[in-house]
Design a binder for these strands. Structure first.
Length: 744
RNA sequence: GGGCGAUUAGCUCAAUUGGCAGAGUGUUUGGUUUACAUCCAAAAGGUUGCAGGUUCAAAUCCUGCAUCGCCCACCA
C-alpha cells in the first residue's frame, strides 16, 4: 500500500465528502422500530460567510457521527436564516456604497433586492460547512422564508391571537432612530457613560436633567412627598424655560431625594420611568422627537434638529437666559442599539406584543420536571429560570422591510388617520394621513409604492386579507411591520420538520439535542421552548447543550476590529478540517471559553499526521507479512499472544469504554483526550515501538487496534480516518462513517 | 444596584463524589539512515490570587479580602 510520508488533507477531504454525500449517509432511514437521534443546526445567517463560532458546530457533528455509528436513524438538519435586521443592516451598507438608501425604494422592491442579495451568498455558507466535514442532511435544507415555513409561522400568530395572547399597544419601546426600528429588550446594550447633568431653573424649583433637549416635552416636575425642602411649593407651578410654559409640581414616591435637586422633570413621551409616572398622574404626553431622531413640536429654531444638535442649542439658549444653574459630570448607564451602537430612544409607538407570561410557565415547568435537560445544568438552568420568571411581554414587530410582514390588515376607509409613506408614480416620496392622500392618489398607486404605514394604536385591524370585514371595502393594506426574526426561528423545530402533519415531524419531534452558545439562551432557546410547547404540548428538544465562546490565546473575544480573528476556512485549508475540529474540542471544559490559536491547530494537525503515519507503518508492514497463516489470531488463541499484545488490547478496551462514556456525558474534551493519549502514547510510542523488534505475528493485533482507533477517532477527525479506513487490508464493504461503534 | 463565573507550570487550560496537582504549547538536553523532525527519550518548570477556618486529608468545603470577566436592571 503506497502512502505519502505525510498526510495531505488537500488530496482527500473533498473527495471523501462527496463520497459520503453520494452514498446518502447523511440522510436517515425512517424506521418505526428504531428511536431516531436528531439535531437541528442552529440556523446561521444565510448571508454570512462562516466565522469561527460556526466551526463549533463540530460538537454537533461529533454527536451525530457517534449516534450514526451506533446504528440510530440520525438526522442533522441544516438551514439558513434570513436574519431580519442583521441582513438588512449589511444590505444597507452595501446600498450606501452606491449612494442609495432604503428610503429610495418601495418596500416590495427593497424586499426583492435583499432577497436576491441573500440568494447569492447562501451557497457560500453551505459549501463552507461541507468543507468542515459536517454530515448534515442537505436534502432537508430549509430557509427561514420558504412559503411552507411561513405558513406555520403565520398560523402560530393566528393561534396566539385567538387565544388572546397577541395585542397591539402603544408602549415605551426601544427605538433606534438610525436603524429605524424598535427592538425587544434583549437587543439593547447597556453601557456606562460619562455625561453631563444640567441643573435648570424652573422658576419655583430647580431640576437636574441629562437631557435638556426634552424640556419641551415636560408635563410636570415631580418630587418625593417626604422631601422636606419642597413641602411648601407642591401647589405651585414650575415654569419650563425658553417657552415659559407652566407645569404642575407633583409628588411621586419613586423620586430619589438625594439625586440632583431631588426634583425630576417628567417627560412621559420620551422616558419609560416618566411614562409610568405620567400614567399615574394623567399627564399629557407631548412628543418632541420623531422616529428619525429629529425634533418636532418645538420652537421653530430647534425644529428638525437631531437630538444632540438640539441639546447643544437648547443648552446655549438656557445659558443666555440665565436658566442654566450649573453642570456636573454624570456617570450613568445608557441604552445602545446592539446593532449600530446608536443611543436608543424610548418611544411611544404602537407595536405588536406577545403575552409572554402564559407561555413562560410551561417552559419553566418542563425544565423543572426534567423533560428538557440543560447541560451544564448548574449555571444555565439558573439563568434560564431567572429570565423566564421575570420576562416581560415580547415586542415582535420590527419596522424593517426584510422579513415576513405581520399578517394583519388595516382598512383605510375605516381608519383614515393611518399615516402612510409611499412613492408615487413619478417617483416622489409622499407622506401623510390617508384622509389627506385619498383625494390625490388612488388606492392602487399607494399600495404599489408603499414604504410603510403607521396605524394609530386604536386602529381596527383584521387577520383577513381580502377586504374589510366591517365595511366590506377593498382598500385594505397589510401591516408593514415585520416579525422579529426570533419569532420565526423560535418555531424552527416546528417549521423545519413540517408541523403538524409532516412525516418528519411525527418521527423526529421532539429532537434529541440542541447545541448552542449561551448568548442566545433567551433569544432562541427559551422562545423555542415556549412556542414549541404552546403549539405541540411537547418540548422541542430533550437536551440543551450549551457551549462557550471562541476566544483567542489571550482570552479575548475575536473581532475584526481587534484583528485577532481566526478564519475557520483559512485554517481548514492550511491544516486540514480535522485539525481545526480537534482544536475546538481538545482541552475545552464544559461551557468554558474555547481557546483557539494557530499553535493549537498546528498541534492537532500533527496528531492527524501521527494517525496517518501509524497507519502507514501498519499497512506497509502488512504487505511484508508473507502469508495470512503466519498471523496469530487474537480470538481463541490468547496463549500465543504475548504480554505486550494483551496490554494494548486491554488498554484499547478501556479507552473505548471511557470515550463512549464521556461522549454520553457531553465531555468531548475528556473523550478526545483519552483517545489522543491512547493512540499516540500507548499505541504508537509503546506498542508499535515494541513490535519493531519482534517477529511478525503482531500484525493482527496491530490491525485490530488500528481499526478500533479509527472508529473512536472518526467523529472527531472524520476525513483522515475515513481515508485510512479505505486503505485497510481487509476489504471493507462499508465506509467508516456507517461502520459500527466499538461496543464497550 | 442585583446575580454569576474565574484566579492552578512561561503561555492557554484540565483535575468525575475532598484522596500522590495533569495536558497541549513553549523551554533545555540527548537521540533518530529502517511509519512520522508535523518524530523519539529525558529534564526543568507549582507555597493552586491573599488571609483565616473545617477535616486524618483541601485546588476542591466554609468565611472574609483582592483583581478580572460576564449576565440582568427604567435611575433622572
Amino acid at each position: 500500500m503506497e502512502m505519502e510520508k505525510t498526510y495531505n488533507h488537500k488530496n482527500t477531504e473533498e473527495a471523501i465528502y462527496k463520497m459520503w454525500e453520494k452514498g446518502g449517509f447523511f440522510t436517515p432511514k425512517i424506521e418505526k422500530s428504531k428511536k431516531p437521534f436528531t439535531i437541528l443546526l442552529p440556523l446561521p445567517n444565510a448571508n454570512d460567510p462562516m466565522h469561527i463560532g460556526h466551526a463549533l458546530f463540530t460538537i454537533q457533528d461529533i454527536l451525530i457521527r457517534y449516534h450514526r455509528m451506533l446504528g440510530e436513524p440520525t438526522l442533522w438538519l441544516p438551514g439558513g436564516d434570513h436574519a431580519g435586521i442583521e441582513t438588512q443592516y449589511v444590505f444597507e451598507k452595501h446600498l450606501a456604497k452606491e449612494g442609495k438608501s432604503r428610503f429610495n425604494y418601495d418596500s416590495e422592491t427593497l424586499y426583492k433586492m435583499i432577497s436576491s442579495f441573500v440568494e447569492e451568498n447562501k451557497d457560500i455558507n453551505k459549501s463552507q460547512m461541507k468543507q468542515l466535514g459536517f454530515s448534515l442532511d442537505w436534502t432537508r435544507y430549509r430557509y427561514s422564508l420558504e412559503p411552507t415555513i411561513l405558513e406555520t409561522v403565520f398560523d402560530t400568530f393566528r393561534e396566539l391571537y385567538k387565544d388572546n395572547l397577541i395585542y397591539r399597544n402603544e408602549k415605551m419601546v426601544n427605538f433606534c432612530p438610525k436603524c429605524g426600528t424598535a427592538f425587544s429588550d434583549l437587543e439593547i446594550n447597556h453601557q456606562e457613560k460619562e455625561d453631563i447633568l444640567y441643573y435648570l431653573d424652573y422658576g419655583a424649583i430647580k431640576i437636574a436633567t441629562a437631557r435638556p433637549e426634552t424640556i419641551f416635552a415636560d408635563a410636570a416636575v415631580a418630587v418625593n412627598p417626604d422631601d422636606k425642602r419642597y413641602k411648601n411649593i407642591q401647589n405651585k407651578k414650575a415654569v419650563i424655560p425658553i417657552i415659559n410654559k407652566e407645569i404642575p409640581i407633583i409628588t411621586d414616591k419613586d423620586i430619589k431625594v438625594d439625586f440632583g435637586t431631588g426634583a425630576l422633570k417628567v417627560t412621559p413621551a420620551h422616558d419609560p420611568v416618566d411614562y409610568e409616572i405620567g400614567q399615574g398622574h394623567n399627564l399629557e404626553v407631548i412628543k418632541t422627537i420623531d422616529r428619525n431622531g429629529r425634533m418636532i413640536n418645538v420652537p421653530q429654531r430647534y425644529l428638525g434638529l437631531k437630538i444632540l444638535r438640539a441639546r447643544e442649542a437648547v443648552v446655549a439658549d438656557l445659558e443666555k437666559e440665565g436658566k442654566l444653574v450649573k453642570t456636573e459630570p454624570l456617570k450613568h448607564a445608557v441604552s445602545l442599539c446592539y446593532k449600530c451602537g446608536s443611543p436608543i430612544e424610548p418611544f411611544l409607538i404602537p407595536q405588536w406584543f406577545v403575552k409572554t407570561k402564559a407561555l413562560a410557565k410551561p417552559a419553566i415547568q418542563a425544565v423543572k420536571e426534567g423533560k428538557t435537560k440543560i447541560v451544564p445544568k448548574k449555571r444555565f438552568e439558573k439563568m434560564y429560570f431567572d429570565w423566564l420568571e421575570n420576562v416581560l411581554d415580547w415586542n415582535i414587530s420590527r419596522q424593517i422591510v426584510w422579513g415576513p410582514r405581520i399578517p394583519a390588515w388595516f382598512c383605510l376607509d375605516c381608519n383614515q388617520n393611518i399615516e402612510i409613506n409611499f412613492i408615487d408614480e413619478n417617483g416622489q416620496k409622499v407622506f401623510g394621513e390617508y384622509k389627506n392622500l385619498k383625494e390625490k392618489y388612488n388606492f392602487s398607486e399607494i399600495e404599489k409604492g408603499l414604504q410603510s404605514l403607521s396605524a394609530p394604536v386604536d386602529a381596527e385591524y383584521s387577520l383577513e386579507s381580502d377586504g374589510c370585514p366591517k365595511c366590506r371595502g377593498k382598500n385594505v393594506l397589510q401591516e408593514t411591520d415585520t416579525f422579529d426574526t426570533w419569532f420565526l426561528s423560535g418555531q424552527w423545530p416546528l417549521t423545519t420538520l413540517g408541523y403538524p402533519n409532516g412525516r418528519d415531524f411525527k418521527y423526529f419531534y421532539p429532537t434529541s439535542v440542541l447545541d448552542t452558545m449561551w448568548d442566545i439562551l433567551f433569544f432562541w432557546v427559551a422562545r423555542m421552548m415556549m412556542l414549541g410547547l404552546y403549539r405541540t404540548g411537547k418540548v422541542p428538544f430533550k437536551t440543551v447543550h450549551i457551549h462557550a465562546r471562541v476566544v483567542d490565546k489571550q482570552g479575548k473575544k475575536m473581532s475584526k476590529s481587534k484583528g485577532n480573528v481566526i478564519g475557520p476556512i483559512e485554517m481548514a485549508e492550511k491544516y486540514g478540517a480535522d485539525a481545526l475540529r480537534m482544536s475546538l474540542v481538545f482541552g475545552v471544559a464544559p461551557a468554558s471559553d474555547v481557546v483557539v490559536s494557530e499553535d493549537k491547530i498546528r498541534a492537532m494537525r500533527n496528531f492527524a499526521n501521527k494517525v496517518w503515519n501509524a497507519s502507514r507503518f501498519v499497512l506497509q508492514r502488512e504487505t511484508k507479512v508473507k502469508s495470512q497463516e503466519s498471523r496469530v489470531k487474537i480470538e481463541g488463541k490468547r496463549s500465543k499472544v504475548n504480554e505486550g499484545d494483551k496490554w494494548i488490547i486491554q488498554e484499547m478496551g478501556k479507552t473505548a469504554v471511557t470515550v463512549t462514556r464521556n461522549l454520553e456525558k457531553y465531555r468531548f474534551d475528556k473523550a478526545v483526550e483519552e483517545i489522543y493519549h491512547f493512540f499516540w502514547h500507548s499505541f504508537c510510542d509503546k506498542y508499535i515501538e515494541s513490535v519493531k523488534d519482534r517477529r511478525e505475528d503482531a500484525q493482527t493485533v496491530l490491525e485490530e487496534v488500528l481499526e478500533t482507533s479509527l472508529k473512536l477517532l472518526h467523529p472527531f477527525m472524520p476525513f483522515v480516518t475515513e481515508e485510512i479506513w479505505g486503505k485497510l487490508p481487509k476489504k471493507k464493504d462499508t465506509p467508516l462513517i456507517i461502520s459500527s461503534w466499538p461496543s464497550a
